[in-house]
Amino acid sequence: MYTQALDTLGAEAASLGEGALEQRFLARVDAEEKIEPKDWMPARYRNTLIRQISQHAHSEIVGMLPEGNWITRAPTLKRKAILIAKVQDEGGHGAYLYSAAETLGVSRDQLIDQLLSGKAKYSSIFNYPTPTWADVGAIGWLVDGAAIMNQIPLCRCSYGPYARGMVRVCREESFHQRQGYDLMLHLARGTPEQKRMAQEALNRWWWPALMMFGPSDANSTHSGDSQRWKIKRFSNDELRQKFVDFTVPQAKFLDLSVPDPLLRWDEAKQMHTFGPIDWNEFDQVLKGNGPCNVERLAARRHAHAEGQWVRDAASAYAEKQRQRAITQAA
């Protein structure tokens, strides 16, 4: 049903005209009504959503890799089970999101092609390496923590399928953050070597986690439209500030230090102030020059190419079964 969504545009648009349709669309968004797949929507809204939802889906899929490589090395059976379940959830989130994107008239294959050809972006955080077990904890605590902060407002996004997908994702994501913090807590209270491992992971992930909220508001190109359309509810800087204010006390509880000499509590403003973000690093990772960009994409391409014969075999079998059913009925 979903790929037909585009077909219905013709008749309706012809009778009303673009301008009137857009007015009606904006009025519905303003009234906090949900836009559904077959509803008329401006092409820019559709494209913005496709871009954002598919980037989000790609991030989940690529995000399976940095933690996934610790599944075979998890230090206890309980941690192994938790990590498998967690990485599996990331895959599930990717699937929910691809499913939401497909309601906008693109196919999963098109989206995967965009990822594998390097045309589509994904969260640059997953281009950083996970050299130690503590990185698994830091990702859960910081990266999933930042993701939750970004995602909770998306549960109220104007596009129905995306909002519903995000409700599901957010419900599951809090397990991810908690297991990460719990892992860090065990390390921070463990042997000196474990504590050092935890501190080094915090050092590695702190700044990239802050970058996850995107460019500062002054330099963000997509924010204006997205806020107008109620896809985005808070600015990048607002969410980043909230994240810092939440996370700094959590680090203190772990007795780990946040790697920012300028970080301090501003009593007057009742918030933390923090040092400048290295946006040059952000740009470089985004452009493909991060430490693991090449590896991550290569892993996805390899899995896709190696899976082709499997997917083809299943399709061929389904077709044979269909033919057999026809022959039997005849």
Binding site: G68, G91, A95, A303
Partner: peptide
Amino acid sequence: EWVGHAPALEEDLGLA
């Protein structure tokens, strides 16, 4: 070892 490398996203979940 398969998780994240399966022939289709849905199989990542199945094998996991």
